[in-house]
């Protein structure tokens, strides 16, 4: 299989780093930002700790956490939510498959920049960040960990990515905390299997899908050779208006499957339209910061 190189553009140019600094500086001033730490602590749930409440059972939940007393009283299945004081960290699970190289600008670069923002905010509000990507699992802690994290993200290269294996890797090292899964979710079936693994461990997952133009529309026309960088399969297709319309329907169908995969496990999926490659405007990227808090 062909080994694809990293995109040539620098993922974190100085304008982006300046914008990132501005975003991190604003993080404390946004509405509710002061209580972010406390809320984050409360959300750091685990299998042991202080009981903080119930939530409805969803398929894939650990049956050991069912509250049978509540079932006896109400006839409905609830899970007990426990707070673990010690574990407060965010795990960035990055899809490093070659399919992330698609798009103009490449989804790969946008994903790294989004991961930098999300990781920076986590380092700003929480104690630590785990970056699981490309077979690596590196932890960063505190504001001082920002630069090493950026450097770590910069050197990542496209590698085969198995969502299920990655999920198992994440949960194998213990409480992953809040998991931000950045991917194109091109294979909803594999995504469902990976989410089932994470759900079984009661992990809290937020899916982040950096959107490129091809995810929403079909700007391409003409006689094209389309290459799937992940599988290496190439097809020559003549794209006209009729095929573009059919392709748009397929994209809608794909997004519905992706949404269904996350909704079935009770996890949110955030779609973040990537700005242009040279767009480092604060307004364009601040949306990501706000979305993280929701």
């Amino acid at each position: 299989m062909k080994v694809w190189p990293r995109p040539p553009e620098e993922p974190f140019p100085p304008p982006f780093q300046a914008m990132l600094t501005a975003i991190l500086a604003r993080a404390a001033r946004v509405q509710g930002g002061r209580t972010e730490v406390a809320r984050a602590r409360q959300r750091a749930l685990s299998q042991s700790g202080t009981f903080v409440g119930h939530r409805a059972y969803a398929p894939g939940d650990d049956l050991r956490r069912l509250d049978w007393h509540a079932f006896a009283r109400t006839g409905q299945l609830f899970l007990k939510l426990l707070e673990e004081e010690e574990r407060r960290q965010t795990t960035l699970l990055l899809d490093t498959s070659a399919s992330m190289l698609a798009g103009e600008p490449a989804r790969w670069t946008g994903t790294l920049r989004l991961a930098a923002i999300l990781g920076g905010l986590a380092l700003r509000h929480l104690d630590g960040v785990r970056v699981v990507a490309g077979g690596t699992d590196v932890a960063f802690a505190g504001s001082a960990g920002l630069s090493p994290m950026l450097q770590h993200l910069r050197v990542l290269a496209p590698r085969p990515f198995d969502p299920v294996a990655a999920a198992q890797s994440v949960v194998a090292r213990g409480a992953p905390g809040r998991i931000a899964w950045l991917s194109d979710f091109a294979d909803p079936a594999a995504v469902e299997r990976a989410l089932a693994v994470l759900r079984r461990c009661s992990a809290r997952v937020v899916g982040w899908q950096p959107m490129i133009a091809e995810d929403l529309d079909v700007p391409l026309r003409g006689w094209l050779r389309l290459v799937d960088p992940e599988t290496g399969v190439a097809e020559s297709i003549a794209v006209d208006a009729e095929l573009a319309a059919a392709m748009r329907e397929e994209l809608v169908r794909l997004r519905r499957r992706q949404d269904r995969a996350f909704v079935s496990f009770g996890y949110p999926l955030q779609r973040f339209p990537l700005p242009a490659a040279t767009d480092f405007g604060l307004a364009s990227w601040l949306e990501a910061a706000w979305s993280r808090r929701s």
Binding site: S99, M100, L101, A102, G103, R107, D184, A186, E214, D215, L220, G222, W223, L224, R225, L226, V227, D228, P229, E230, T231, V233, A234, E235, I237, M247, E250, L251, R253, L254
Partner: peptide, 11 residues
């Protein structure tokens, strides 16, 4: 023209 795409199955 050769174009990388993540949606070849959809195409």
């Amino acid at each position: 023209r050769e174009t990388l795409t993540a949606h070849l199955p959809q195409w």
